[in-house]
Design a protein around this nucleic acid. Structure first.
Length: 363
DNA sequence: AATTCGGGGAC
DNA sequence: GTCCCAGAATT
C-alpha cells in the first residue's frame, strides 16, 4: 500500500465514504422501516411517475396523488391516451404544473415511439422531458440497479454534514463537488438499495432539524463533532418574494360561469381561471368595477359576494380579491368561455380558485 | 449563472 | 414569518 501524500486525501475520504455507506446499508436493513407504495417497485412506469410527482414535493403530500394517478392511469399507454384536461384534473393542487405537461409529453413519447418501453440507460432516461439528473439516476438505479448516485435535497444535506462540506449546494461548483462525492461513495452493485437508504435517512434522521441522538454515524459525523448541524448544508441564494394582486370576477349567469385557460408564460400555466384583472396594488371594489366594465363591457350585473384571500408561493405572495357577480343575460366575452358548473368541475384550477369551485358554484 | 416554475408542513 | 421538500426547464 502506497502512502504518498497525494493519495492520502483521496484514501481518507474513500475510507470514510465506504464506512458511511456500509453503516447506512446496515441501518437500512435493520432499523429502516419506512414504507412507501413505490418502494421496491420494479415497473419503470410507476417509478418514473412517483419520481416526477415527488420533485420538490414531500412524500406525504405526493402519496395521495400517486395513488389517484395509478388508479386513473395504470400504465403508460392509458396515460398517453388520456385527454389533457383529465390528466391536469388529477394533478390539480400538486403544484409545479410544468411537471404535468412534461409527464404527458413523455408518456406519449414512450407509448408511441418506444413501444411503451422505458429507456434503460442513464443518458436515454435523461433525454426524457421532465427527467433531469436526479430522476434519471433514481429510475436507473431503482429499476435497473444502474450505478448512478441520486443527488436530491436529502443527499445534499446528509453528505454536507457527514463530511463537513461547506460548498454552497446551489452553486455550480458545489453541485459538482457533491455529485462527485455521491458517485464516489456509491456502493456499486447496490445502487438501488443505497440510493433509497440515503434518502430515507435524510428524511427521517438527518432532517433539516436532525435527530443526532438516533444517528448511527453520530461520532463520525463532522457536523455533529464540530456542532455545525444548523449551518449545513450551505445555501448562498435567497429567494425574493414578489407581490401580485389578482382580482377575479366570478361572472355567473344561471348555472354557467366565465372561464379561461391560462396559456401565458406564468404561474399556473395550463390551469383555468375566472375573469382576471391584475393590478399593481390593492384596489377597492368600485375601482375594479370600472376596470371590469371598461375591459369586458359588462354592466347589467349584481354583486352577490366580495371577499379577499392571500396565498404564498415560493417566489410570489399573491393577494386575491374576488367579486362574485350575477348577470341577467349572457354576453360574449373575448377569450373567456361560458361554462356550465358541471363542466367547470372537470377542469383544473389553481388551489385558491379550486376552493371556490368546490364551495360556491352550486352542488 | 440566474430565474422561475406550487403548495404544504415543520419550526 | 422562514425554510425546505425524492428538481427541471428556460433565459
Amino acid at each position: 500500500m502506497k502512502e504518498e501524500s497525494g493519495e492520502k486525501e483521496v484514501l481518507k475520504t474513500g475510507k470514510r465514504g465506504a464506512d458511511f455507506a456500509n453503516a447506512l446499508l446496515h441501518w437500512n436493513r435493520t432499523e429502516n422501516h419506512r414504507q412507501m407504495p413505490w418502494k421496491g417497485e420494479k415497473d419503470p412506469y410507476k417509478i418514473w411517475l412517483s419520481e416526477i410527482m415527488l420533485q420538490q414535493t414531500r412524500v406525504e403530500q405526493g402519496l395521495k396523488y400517486y395513488q389517484n394517478f395509478i388508479e386513473a392511469f395504470p400504465n403508460v399507454h392509458v396515460l398517453a391516451a388520456a385527454p389533457e384536461a383529465k390528466v391536469f384534473k388529477v394533478w390539480e393542487g400538486l403544484g409545479y404544473y410544468s411537471r404535468c405537461r412534461n409527464l404527458m409529453t413523455t408518456a406519449s413519447h414512450v407509448s408511441n415511439e418506444l413501444n411503451g418501453i422505458f429507456p434503460k440507460t442513464y443518458e436515454e432516461l435523461l433525454s426524457l422531458k421532465g427527467v433531469g439528473s436526479y430522476t434519471a439516476a433514481a429510475i436507473g438505479s431503482f429499476a435497473y440497479n444502474l450505478p448512478c448516485a441520486v443527488l436530491d435535497g436529502n443527499v445534499f444535506r446528509v453528505l454536507s454534514r457527514i463530511f463537513g462540506i461547506e460548498a454552497p449546494i446551489d452553486s455550480t461548483q458545489g453541485k459538482k463537488t457533491f455529485s462527485a462525492l455521491a458517485q464516489a461513495i456509491l456502493p456499486k452493485g447496490q445502487a438501488g438499495e443505497y440510493n433509497q437508504a440515503i434518502m430515507d435517512f435524510g428524511a427521517m434522521i438527518c432532517k433539516p432539524s436532525p435527530l443526532c441522538d438516533a444517528c448511527f454515524f453520530q461520532q463520525k459525523c463532522t457536523a455533529y463533532v464540530e456542532g455545525k448541524q444548523s449551518i449545513l448544508p450551505v445555501k448562498e441564494k435567497k429567494t425574493v418574494l414578489k407581490k401580485r394582486w389578482l382580482n377575479y370576477f366570478i361572472v355567473q349567469c344561471g348555472d354557467e360561469v366565465l372561464v379561461q385557460q391560462r396559456l401565458e408564460k406564468d404561474i399556473w400555466h395550463g390551469l383555468h381561471q375566472f375573469v382576471l384583472i391584475e393590478t399593481k396594488k390593492t384596489c377597492k371594489t368600485k375601482q375594479l368595477e370600472v376596470l371590469f366594465q371598461k375591459q369586458y363591457g359588462l354592466e347589467n350585473y349584481t354583486i352577490v359576494d366580495d371577499w379577499k384571500t392571500q396565498q404564498h408561493l415560493s417566489h410570489q405572495s399573491v393577494c386575491f380579491h374576488f367579486v362574485h357577480v350575477k348577470l341577467k343575460r349572457k354576453k360574449k366575452v373575448e377569450n373567456y368561455t361560458w361554462t356550465k358548473f358541471s363542466d367547470v368541475k372537470e377542469l383544473a384550477f389553481p388551489r385558491a380558485l379550486q376552493q371556490i369551485v368546490a364551495s360556491r358554484l352550486g352542488v
